[in-house]
């Protein structure tokens, strides 16, 4: 068993990192690992309510985000500074998250066995 943290840094659309990162979480949920996810930088937009990706021809995150918890990714952190810089508030997010400053996130990162960036 390993403590694995997914560190999402990229915007939800424009590149595939966010989406393929999410696919990793879903598969890892089938294994005995302790999973958590952080959203920082432009990745905070991935959590935003009301995204409509129909014009992009891609599925979008909104159906998948709420099941992360069921897949064993119980802790979802948002970097406070990234959120505030982009004019977002906790109420803007589609799922419950824990907002934390970068020092706090750094501390949790230190406890991890593996960090996978997307």
């Amino acid at each position: 068993m390993a403590k694995i943290m997914f560190v999402n840094r990229n915007a939800p659309h424009g590149t595939i990192y966010a989406w393929e990162g999410l696919e990793v979480v879903l598969i890892f949920g089938a294994y005995e690992n302790e999973l958590s996810a952080v959203y920082m930088d432009d990745a905070v937009f991935s959590l935003k309510k009301g995204q409509d990706t129909s014009a992009l021809g891609i599925k979008g995150f909104l159906q998948t985000l709420p099941v992360l918890e069921d897949y064993g990714c119980e802790k979802i952190y948002v970097d406070k500074e990234s959120m505030e810089k982009r004019g977002l508030k906790v109420d803007d997010f589609a799922i419950p998250v824990e907002v934390m400053d970068s020092a706090g996130i750094g501390k949790i990162m230190e406890e991890q066995d593996v960090i996978l960036p997307f």
Binding site: E23, Y31, V114
Partner: peptide
């Protein structure tokens, strides 16, 4: 599959991306 990545993560002492 991605399960292989999960195994690498549990078995390796360090994972470098």
């Amino acid at each position: 599959g991605l399960g292989q990545l999960s195994e690498i993560c549990t078995e390796a002492e360090r994972v470098v991306t």
